[in-house]
Nucleic acid binder design. Sequence first.
DNA 1: AATCTCTTCAACCGCCTCCGG
DNA 2: TCCGGAGGCGGTTGAAGAGAT
Length: 249
Amino acid sequence: MEGSSLRVRKGAWTEEEDLLLKKCIEKYGEGKWHQVPARAGLNRCRKSCRLRWLNYLKPNIKRGHFAADEVDLIIRLHNLLGNRWSLIAGRLPGRTANDVKNYWNTHLLKKNIDTFSKTSNPKSHQLKPNTKVIKPRPQILSKRSFLVNLDEYNNNNNNNNNNRAETSNNVVLADCGDNHGGYCFPDHDEMMWWENMMMNEKEVDGHQLQCSANDIDQSVLDQIMNEDNYGNTMDEFFLDEELWNVFNP
DNA sequence: AATCTCTTCAACCGCCTCCGG
DNA sequence: TCCGGAGGCGGTTGAAGAGAT
């Protein structure tokens, strides 16, 4: 059992340990966490190293107060996704899942509880008591299975109406996370996609997932299929009922 | 000044999923 | 098919600092 060894150090990290870890990641890159403690000369378990890097040492991590627009986004995404902190954090550049979770628990959770008990202002961005949180089912696809299934999916649509753009299938999202080495939607497309989804909150609450297949440009799909890196690790695909069935016959 | 209480957030823990042997 | 190891995630804890009494 990890962390049960008496020899493994726990607790707050020292500057020296941070430095060792940083140098190790710079030299060998992220990943292979089981090798990191030995490589870095650290008396820490792999999980501790990974966490320290992802939540604290990694470059571009944004520290300090959450801006109003970030808070707004967190509230909206939490409405949609529930406690899927890594997904939410993935839409907030520089913020980690731990940061978002902590912020929610310390700042927003209390607010929501207060809001529930005092008011039901429809214009409020606070969680509505009866909001049904969408919990999309994650599907992990390797490059191979993604391409096969995508092919099947397109064939089905082509058979039906010969025009993907007219399909009613709804793709929910492709989570690329930040560190998976997999495909990410280009910023603009991704932003538009999320904006689109969140602008349609009413239907989302009614469980109709929002991004139809024609919202994802063919060029984006082409890029997925040509992306060499895609699928070496895995990305999650969240699918609506119909598309889920296509991918899981 | 001392003590108590509250808040924050870094870090840990346990669980789940995937992959490779 | 099974099993163990690795990566990753969400929930929880506890130390440290801030504020109140």
